[in-house]
């Protein structure tokens, strides 16, 4: 019984192995041919690509990674770019809680922040996402300059009153506006105690030049007639891992910007990164009108120990353009 089986097995084995070898050979040959053809083909494509562009593009993926892609492999998605950006802009940047600290003791009203902001967001001279106000709290206290932007409140009154969900609060703390959705009722302007919002009453700056451009909700650009605009904490720069336009433009080290979750903020001028909690604790940080319950994401450090004399703003009222 056993012998028989073994014999049979041997017989089968030998016949099987010969068949297997045969198949193997054919397979090898096939693979070789395929590989050769593949190499030839890819070489051909490579040549063609080189002939076509020879360009490698660096792109930012949705999860914030830089990748290199050959431009020939890029194809337009079925969705239009405005729609894609609108969807992405609703979500916010995973795991972040953006926060700004403004050190009033350093502000000399250079207004470089404003220029950078207006440049980035295509604003006219009289339109401010960010404005420096000359403040004086009581008759005997010292006047100071106070940069004032959207406070990106955690309990935003503007978002509460919007009838169409055009202005919204994202997971990363930023309050944004969808100008493709805004109906221009201006209820949010009425609701905001910080006067942070502006409206495009007339044709926006360079409207003709930017006509037809894809709308970027994280930059509010191109600006749209008959809709609201305001500070966005430079949401587009946040996505690139860069500091906001105003923060980078300040020559005097007024602004700190960073992530509350990391407990770290970076100064836009000195590029120094400090602990947020320590900065707030050591400098007597405060918020604008906290009694209103809006819970702002902007902190102010009081204007004490100033190294320069106060110079009143030369208020040249810009003409309405």
């Amino acid at each position: 019984m056993d012998e028989n089986t073994v014999n049979k097995g041997d017989e089968q084995d030998s016949s099987k192995s010969s068949r297997r070898n045969f198949l193997k050979n054919i397979g090898l040959l096939g693979a070789g041919v395929a590989a050769g053809a593949g190499a030839l083909y890819s070489g051909d494509i490579f040549e063609k690509k080189k002939a076509a562009t020879g360009e490698a593009k660096v792109l930012l993926t949705q999860d914030n990674k830089l990748v290199e892609v050959d431009s020939l492999e890029l194809k337009a998605l079925a969705k239009n770019p405005t729609k894609l950006m609108l969807e992405k802009g609703r979500e916010g940047i995973e795991g972040r809680r953006w926060v700004m600290v403004i050190d009033l003791s350093k502000c000399r009203n250079a207004r470089r922040c404003i220029a950078a902001c207006q440049e980035a967001h295509q604003l006219k001279p009289g339109q401010y996402h960010l404005n420096t106000l000359q403040m004086q709290d009581a008759p005997d206290t010292a006047p100071y300059h106070m940069p004032k932007n959207c406070q990106h409140c955690d309990n935003p009154p503007c978002v509460a009153v919007c009838p169409v969900d055009a202005t919204y609060k994202r997971g990363d703390g930023i309050v944004l506006i969808d100008n493709e959705r805004c109906i221009g009722c201006r209820f949010c302007m009425a609701a905001c105690p910080y006067s942070a919002r502006i409206f495009q009453w007339t044709l926006p700056k360079d409207a003709g030049k930017h006509q037809g451009e894809a709308y970027n909700v994280e930059l509010n650009v191109p600006q749209k007639l008959g809709t609201i605009s305001k500070c966005l904490f430079s949401a587009d720069r946040c996505r690139e891992g860069k500091l906001p336009y105003c923060v980078s433009a300040c020559p005097n080290g007024v602004y700190y910007f960073g992530d509350e979750n990391e407990d770290a903020v970076s100064n836009g001028t000195t590029k120094e990164t400090v602990r947020l909690s320590k900065l707030l604790r050591d400098n007597g940080a405060y918020q604008l009108m906290p009694e209103l319950g809006t819970r702002p994401r902007v902190y102010y450090l009081p204007p004490k120990n100033r190294l320069f004399p106060f110079e009143p703003a030369t208020d040249e009222a810009p003409k309405e353009g």
Partner: peptide, 25 residues
Amino acid sequence: DMGRPERLAYVFLYARFQSPILWDV
């Protein structure tokens, strides 16, 4: 008073009932 009267339908399409404007309508 609307800046974008042509978007009037959005008040119904994207209605947010938290907004007093919706109550008013």
